[in-house]
């Protein structure tokens, strides 16, 4: 490469990084700035808005509800997906395409469409089972399927499931033992990834909760925004920071291995259509 062209390339790279860096960082910085404003224009910086979060019962309730939903969804996801994926890999390989299709389907069905069909189902559930906000975990499990599936798929592809299972079975292990004590301990990173992604999706969900009239974290932030913009922006920053931390942990654990074991071709990228986060 000639020196002239290398210089031009470096100038181009610098310009792109500075411009787009500003575009991405300024709004986040502005949120911090906004959340520390005083009451009047000349008032000194204050952390009052942040301290008010804990004293607002509605917000605390919504935060607890969302955390509960995150835990329930992650557990449900593990219980539903892990045994099924292992079993399909070992015994029902002809079903693997069907499972993959169903798990990735929520990416192509926008959350706003899903909610139109969920309304009657939740109406029935509210009348006959429970109207607790925690029932949202049922549909959140569907929302996290694509992300969890991909994480677990990568984990399963990296180990020799068949040999492990045959070895354990020939030593007399039951299928439960094979799954819980042989295969699962061999994919801790994949399980951690699947859980973190599920938590991130659940904490960010707004569409379905809002339209089914439940107040989860995001809905509470939106409602609080109408009463007190500073406080709601403080909560938004807090929830954002939390999601950031989760996803940064994730990117440090998960990505390198994902490069070694590439995904099956033709998988749409997660975060495409569905998710309900935007």
């Amino acid at each position: 490469m000639s020196r002239n062209r290398r210089l031009k390339l470096q100038i181009f790279r610098l310009a792109v990084f500075v411009l787009l860096g500003a575009f991405f960082l300024i709004p986040i910085g502005a949120m911090f700035e906004f959340s520390t404003r005083g009451v009047t224009e000349d008032a000194p910086r204050t952390l009052n808005a942040w301290l008010t979060i804990a004293q607002t019962p509605d917000l605390v309730a919504a935060i607890l509800a969302s955390l509960g939903l995150a835990v329930l969804t992650s557990l449900g996801m593990l219980v539903l997906l892990v045994p099924t994926m292992i079993w399909v890999r070992l015994r029902l390989p002809h079903l693997s395409r069907v499972i993959e299709f169903l798990c990735l389907l929520p990416l192509t069905i926008p959350a706003i469409v899903l909610v139109a069909g969920l309304a009657p189902i939740y109406l029935w559930m509210n009348l006959n089972i429970s109207d607790s906000i925690l029932t949202l975990a049922f549909v959140y499990l569907v929302l996290v399927l694509p992300y969890a599936y991909r994480a677990l798929y990568t984990g399963l592809a990296a180990i020799d499931v068949k040999t492990l299972a045959e070895a354990a079975r020939s030593l007399g292990a039951s299928w439960i033992t094979v799954m819980m004590r042989v295969i699962v301990p061999n994919m801790p990173v994949a399980i951690l990834n699947a859980c973190l992604l599920s938590v991130a999706v659940v904490l960010g969900e707004f569409t379905i909760a809002n339209l089914l009239n439940y107040v989860n974290l995001q809905v509470a932030i939106a409602l609080a925004g109408r009463a007190n913009a500073t406080v709601s922006i403080a909560v938004a920053v807090a929830s954002l920071l939390f999601a950031f931390i989760l996803l940064v942990i994730l990117s440090f654990f998960g990505r390198p291995r994902a490069r070694v074991a590439p995904d099956a071709p033709g998988l749409p990228y997660p975060g495409a259509a569905g998710g309900g986060m935007r």
Partner: peptide, 29 residues
């Protein structure tokens, strides 16, 4: 690439508020 992975998932209420805090009526910019 890590930042892009995070920001591609960013959206909804938080993102809307980020822009209100930036270029809303009383925004920073």
């Amino acid at each position: 690439s890590s930042a892009c992975g995070v920001l591609a998932q960013f959206g909804g209420v938080t993102l809307a508020f980020a822009f209100i805090a930036t270029i809303g009526g009383a925004g920073f910019i």
